[in-house]
Design a binder for these strands. Structure first.
Lengths: 195, 195, 195, 195
DNA sequence: GATGAATGAGTGTTCATTCAT
DNA sequence: AATGAATGAACACTCATTCAT
């Protein structure tokens, strides 16, 4: 007997997601402050007031958007590395996947980066992702050092070099196809001429 | 008879610079949109109207601040590298100087990064600095390849790795003392265990 | 076959009364303007839309509440005085009953007083009650003058003094037990020392 | 050298007072909640924004209006009674002055009474005035009892009867010329026929 | 009968900018 | 040069009311 109610609830949930998704796009385009509630509602094709039926404030809408598109779990999957496979094989794979992830969530990334200097909510989320990525990558490198494939060295710095390079390349523009292999090659073999 | 006029002009110039410098600080703290004209004038200890005596608009004040603190010339000095000195010596020097420069101009950097996704004026400036740094660094690396110190490789990518790493490390927080040497060491010698 | 219809109608009437009563309480607490339709529906535990099934508008709900709780008939019963009983006996009785009536209908009174300066509907209702009370009380006093118990005087003013005192005392806070007897005593005997 | 600045400051002060006075009138007419900022600014013939140059919020404007028109000092002057003059002379004088004061500050009174059930700021102010009036009047009556002019009785109640009657009469409409003398006469001599 | 999604006009407030002094 | 009063177009948000289900 509550099937109609279920249908309604489903429709409401769809509307909620639609509002979140269009909001993310608008936030990415104009910035959070730059995006007016009018912008947001027009982009979704609804009246301004409806936003406040679903979210208490513009800020709560932002929060919901960040929540929905947060990719930490995905990042974990990407960096769940098989410690027995050689770095020469694995590192290119992981930076490629990272780059793909950035491409896919580029709206989210734009918003996060833009707000990361002002919005404390965002700062924390960004920082958590960064730490997670660097830590997992560093652990993997340590295990490859232990396996004798890599020489003993400051693995955390290596992890950072890789992560920063992929992230920065993505921000500056889509990195060319050559960039990622060259990055991994440089980090693995260095640039000093072999004697 | 024009000495007082000169004095006046001098005083006006001082006031102009004061307005610019306090504005940069306020922009860095609150963001360009977040900083109201009232904030700016109060920080400088003057009336709101005075800002419009020196600058046509809030945006022009931003422009003037970016102009005044733009560090491209300084970047050029830093990257004016002696092509005959070995990379093993030079690279640590240059990343250290880059890091110092970021530290020194951190207010400017905060403003530029925050606005880089929205303000086209800023985008262009940032991009020019980036390209300049990467190009000069790349050229230097090429010359060291030619000199036989470095193996033939994708020098632009190396230049990017270095620049991105220094910039990103600075953004995330002040890099530790170990980071820069480790960065250079990794890039020079790679991380693969020697056979 | 119309018994269920009767039951339904009965239930509907109950719901109507419930909405009215909770509305009166909310109006008293927050004021008519201050009470939102959401407040009203939440207080009644129903959806907003339902209010519009029973009442055409928020204002009509207010009207219904004023209608339902209007105490003019009760006021008439209270002031239906036996003209042959002495004032010394009757007056304390009537002010006591008046005070009790104010206490009992204090939600209604709060709403009425709050709106009496803006809502013409309310103004009229309040004024009618006031006039009725003063007139009936005045008539009674006249009859006691005719009976020789009271001296000839401006009985309307006396009626007002009594009514205003009880009403104002109630508004300022619940009057102490002493107030009403002292009020009647003062009005009856005055405060001038007897020669 | 600051004369022009003084003139400007003076003009600003005049504007401030004008805004307060027109606001009081609008608040009295439409109620505080019912008066929009647009109403207030239009009544003063200025742009909406200007209100916020002088007052932080609509509420602060209300506060300023209440402050400016608060008549407690005037009430004190009115009730600074000569304790040696007979009550038969003094009481009519004081209720007449009270009535005149109510007439003069009727805008203020309307606002205060309307908000007294919701705005705590207003409640406190009203209560203070009421207590002050009742206390001073009661003290005076006590001294007349001591002087033997008045019989020993509950003087606070008498004070309340007088104050409530004048206030209520004013609220209900302007009291007729007869009301005040009749009020004082009744309170002084009572209404019981002399034996 | 009952729900709550949806509307849109209107609210108090902010703010870059102008201008008379 | 310097002030700050004044403007008016936004802005985020509220709310009585409507309507499809």
């Amino acid at each position: 007997m509550n099937e109609p109610a279920t249908a309604r609830r489903h429709q409401a949930e769809q509307r909620r997601l639609q509002l979140i998704d269009t909001a993310l796009a608008v936030f990415a385009e104009k910035g959070v402050d730059g995006a007016t509630v009018k912008d947001l509602s027009q982009a979704a094709g609804v009246a301004q007031g409806l936003l406040y039926h679903y979210f208490r404030s513009k800020d709560e809408l932002l929060e919901a958007a960040l929540e929905r598109h947060y990719f930490l779990p995905e990042l974990r999957r990407i960096t769940a590395l098989d410690r027995d496979r050689p770095a020469a094989e694995v590192l290119l794979e992981v930076v490629t996947r990272l780059a793909a992830m950035f491409r896919q969530h580029h709206l989210f990334m734009r918003v996060v980066l833009r707000e990361s200097l002002s919005n404390p909510l965002v700062v924390e989320r960004l920082e958590r992702g960064r730490r997670e990525a660097v830590r997992v990558l560093g652990d993997y490198l340590d295990s490859r050092v232990a396996a004798g494939e890599l020489r003993p060295h400051d693995t955390e710095t290596t992890a950072r070099i890789l992560a920063y390079a992929v992230a920065a390349a993505h921000l500056v523009g889509t990195p060319s196809d050559d960039f990622l292999p060259a990055l991994v090659d440089t980090v693995l073999h260095g640039i000093i001429a072999q004697p």
